[in-house]
Design a protein around this nucleic acid. Structure first.
Lengths: 146, 146
DNA sequence: CATATAACTTAGCCTATGCTAAACTTTGGA
DNA sequence: TCCAAAGTTTAGCATAGGCTAAGTTATATG
């Protein structure tokens, strides 16, 4: 290779960021599901496949398949043809997600974006925000409005 | 259904956010690739599979397969066993990504997070930030630091 | 109490994104 | 000039996460 043989010392450091993003993505779906199941249980007393499918905007069969994975991961429990429940770990993950989600959304609002954009962007952003950034957002909220 | 028959008026609105997130994810990988190819071309004169694989932290074969998709999408061009080039559209996407990425990273720094965290988090966040939020970040930067 | 409808499940398909192992080109040196 | 090392590609596999269509179970109501 004639030109630019230098690999740069930071190849491994660079790749770490992308690895984190990929890892976040695998965890993301599980987080969205348990958060939504928790919301449904709180709002309406029970969580059903159909409601999840509707809110997520996917087909019913997709929800069923994903729920099987979540059962394997011990985040939810379910009997055939019955409502869906969260395990203790599932509730913990849901609570964490809610806290994070709420903070990011409030932060975006405080930054000056519209309600609608805050709602949509926070959904995408929440899973990629480290605890350090989350703390920084919290501090910002403490200084500036609500 | 005895309890809670009400579907809520916002099911479709809710699902829109998740649909956006899913759409973002499909576009994300393409964005990361073209941005990295652009960086490699600028830094070292050419972009090769091996360098992309190393920086991304994935196997070589994965890069090859993804590049085929990017060729189909007319974002890159490539002859067998040769370096990789961006099409005009590829360059445009790379530039957009860089601008967005740089802005998000600077914003996180201004918010008070460490260099390292800003680098890592911005990688995950950049693909989920709407133009409205981006503008809000820009305004914040104009007011506060750098 | 029988049955239609709504909800759930299964089966089978697809694409995206990863991997390893093996085969093939290029190319720099001996 | 020719060969070995480095880089590239192919082949084959796995998992995640989508879909539709067809079958099964629960239940609300006539």
């Amino acid at each position: 290779m004639a030109l630019a043989t230098k690999k740069g010392p930071s190849a491994k450091l660079r790749s770490a960021a992308f690895k984190r993003v990929r890892a976040d993505h695998s965890a993301e779906l599980a987080g969205d599901y348990v958060e939504m199941i928790a919301d449904l249980i709180d709002e309406r007393g029970e969580a059903r496949c159909t409601d999840i499918a509707m809110r997520l905007g996917v087909a019913n069969a997709t929800v069923v398949k994903t729920l099987r994975r979540l059962q394997t991961a011990e985040l939810v429990t379910q009997e055939p043809y019955r409502a869906i429940f969260l395990t203790a770990e599932g509730w913990k993950m849901a609570e964490d997600g809610r806290r994070k989600h709420a903070l990011v959304e409030k932060f975006l609002l405080a930054l000056g974006v519209s309600t609608e954009t805050a709602r949509i962007d926070s959904e995408g952003i929440e899973h990629h925000v480290s605890s350090e950034t989350l703390r920084a957002m919290g501090k910002f909220l403490a200084r500036h409005g609500s």
